[in-house]
Structures are given as structure tokens and as C-alpha cells.
Amino acid sequence: MNNPREILILSGKGGTGKTTVASSLAKLINKKVIADTDVDAADMHIMLNPSLIEEHSFKGRSKAFIEQDKCNQCGLCHSKCKFNAIDKLDNKYIVNSFSCEGCTLCYEVCPTNAIVMEEEEAGKWYLSKTDFGLFVHARLNPGAENSGNLVSMVKHQAKQTAIKNNIDTILIDGPPGIGCPVIASLSGANTVILVTEPTVSGVSDLKRIIGVAQNFKPEIAIVINKFDINTDISKQIDDYANNNKIPILAHIPFDKCIVELLMEKRTPIESNDCPEINKEIKSILNYLGEKHDN
């Protein structure tokens, strides 16, 4: 079969409503595999109430350890390390595993072979069942390196799960920012929905994330959340999108009801309290549906 279509929700700036939009869509799209690639602050599981099917350890890159009995305190590792990951404490050289990137430079230069490279667990990834479909998610150990690698793993597993179960759509809740986990999420994405907000920061981040996303040539669309907290800036986003031929799928109003429902772990579409918001979210679905049926 063909590769499944990947729909990725991103935002650049954090806290603009990515997960609210993604979990609403997760509950509306008919047949899909759901994935959460915000691996160092994963939240989607809170809304989906998953039951675990599989749990896998995710190995990070090996990190350096110094065997003190072999170390002659020459300090070569300390001076050569580009990551300042080797500290000198009480006349002993010790690797700071938070800073070690596992490049093996110290291992190569140590004259007494006192350095060993040891594999470390960097996190876990899970396959779960939810009422809304199969769900691939992960948890990066706090502070672990390799978040991009774990993202690639989650995406890979979601794709395999989709192919195995004959499902042709993958819905992905992505991470904030523009760095490595975002770039790993974008690789292979077909449709990218950018959730933004009409704030100076939101617009500045929106432009940066568009710059990153365009390198991957997906179809890009925008959702403006809390559009009515600043209608002037909302208008600026509308114009910017227009000039760049990017469709705007929805203008979601600022409403306390989103937060109140979130407290009960419910999305707006599961309630009749916010009809305006539901209408807007459904127009995102229509856009995806129209494209999807082709």
C-alpha cells in the first residue's frame, strides 16, 4: 500500500493550543493512528485515556564513564571535550552525563584506556489502545539528549502500525520550537497545521516555523486560536497568510470554556458549551476531509 498520510500539528510558540486542536481532531477523524511527538512534554495521553499494549525501552547514544582505577589524571579528556562534559572534582575526573553527547572523543584520546562507553536508556515509547484509535507515544527521560531520535522512533512506529492495520492517516501532535524534535517531526509530513495566536510573539514564531516547515514541502495551513484577544494582529495574520497563499482553516475565539473542559480532560467537541469553537474545529476537519477523499 501507499504510505499513510501524515497530518502534523505544530505551532512554533508553545501553549497556543496545539494539543487541544490535535486531541479534538483525534476524536473527530474516523480512521487514523494517533502519535504524540512532543516527547519531552507529552500531553496528548491526558485527553485520550490510553490503555497500554506495548512498552519499549529507547536506548540513547552511549555515554562515557571513567574507570577511576585506570585514570592517571592526565586531564586530556577534560581539555579536549567540546561539550565541557568532564568535570574535575576532588582531583578526580568525572563525566557529567547531562552534558555528554557520546561522541567518543575522550574514549579515543585516553592514554590509559580508562574510559568506557555505556549504553543508557533515554526514554520509553508506547503503543496504546484508545477509544479513538491506536496511539503511539513516548516519554523522554528528563534531560536526556536525543529527543529528535525518539521523535523519529515514534513516527516510524506510528507508520508501521498504520501500514499493519491498513490505516491511511496518521495524526501527529508535534512539539513546540523549531529545533531538532520539530525537524524530526516534519520529515515525511504531508499536511502541517500551524496553530497560532494573535500575539506579537505568536506571529514572530509563526513566521519562523513556516520557514522551517517549507523546507520539507508539505501542504501548510493555519489555525488562529484566541483570535479575538487582538483582532488587529489576527487581521495581520490573515493578510500574511493570504499573501503567502496559505489557507486559514479556523478562527477559534478566546473562551474560558476550553480551559474548564480541559480540567475535566474533555475537548470542546465533547461538550455543547462552546458551539462557536466546535464550528471552527469542524471546519479544520472539513479541510482535511476534502483533501483526504481525493
Binding site: D40, F98, L140, G143, A144, E145, S147, G177, G179, P181
Partner: peptide, 10 residues
């Protein structure tokens, strides 16, 4: 800081 709990936050 950036959000999250990965390398830049460390």
C-alpha cells in the same frame, strides 16, 4: 528558558 525538558533546558 525554552519549553520542554530536553538538552536546551538542561
Amino acid at each position: 528558558s525554552a519549553p520542554g525538558s530536553a538538552c536546551p533546558v538542561v
